[in-house]
């Protein structure tokens, strides 16, 4: 996140007030550097200054961890608990790639602190199914080709599974509205909707 030399593309995008990028102002001369964003800059656990203990229940297992208090639930899952199935897209609530379940409800793990989740039941894509024994939603995404590059897919699936228990009308439009918090840069939307509707129809 901290790129002293200029704004990384990621932080530039996240600084835009609107969710979409439709409002990019040509008048604002921000350098959009192509510098790679350091993804794995977390030091080894012993080296963390100001570390605090946290106990999280993830996919049914209790994990006793030591983290910097600033750690988002997303970074804690990926970097500390090594559950990298949950993805980081925007880190600002704007894309849905980081969607996990907290006590059965879908949330954006990037906008929550890990410290706020002691005592909660956290479920990630790893807890949903395995390649040998897929959750029906995972199987349906495979069946309907609900992805292209796959980066948004774990978030889409976590969202879709939560949607099954939420009030949602029968139409494709209803599904699209409730899935709008999950952006797919590859535009696999028609197949994603088909995959979800197939599960809803068999449920």
């Amino acid at each position: 996140m901290s790129d002293e030399s200029g704004l990384s593309r990621r932080s530039f995008l996240s600084r835009l007030g609107a969710v979409g990028v439709a409002t990019v102002a040509p008048a604002v001369a921000q350098p959009v550097s192509a510098a790679p964003v350091a993804l794995l800059d977390a030091p080894a656990p012993e080296a963390i200054e100001n570390a605090v203990p946290v106990s999280l229940k993830v996919n049914g297992k209790v994990l006793d961890l030591k983290i910097d208090p600033r750690t988002s639930l997303l970074d804690c899952l990926r970097e500390t608990a090594s559950l990298t199935g949950t993805k980081k897209g925007c880190d600002h609530g704007q894309c849905g790639a980081c969607t996990v379940h907290v006590n059965g409800r879908r949330v954006n793990s990037c906008l929550s602190l890990a410290l706020m989740h002691e005592g909660d039941e956290i479920t990630t894509i790893e807890g949903l199914g395995t390649p040998e024994n897929m959750h029906p939603m995972q199987a349906s995404f495979v069946e309907h080709d609900g992805y292209q590059c796959g980066y948004c897919t774990s978030g889409q699936i976590m969202s879709a599974v939560a949607l099954l228990k939420e009030p949602c009308g029968p139409a494709d439009a209803d599904v699209k509205e409730l899935m709008s918090g999950n952006i797919c840069r590859c535009g696999a939307y028609p197949n994603i909707v088909a995959a979800i509707q197939a599960v809803r129809h068999t449920a």
């Binding site: 969607t99 879908r106 949330v107 954006n108 929550s112 969202s159 939420e166 918090g181």
Partner: peptide, 9 residues
């Protein structure tokens, strides 16, 4: 407003 995930939070 926002998205289903954000509204849950």
């Amino acid at each position: 407003g926002a998205s289903a995930q954000l509204r849950n939070m």
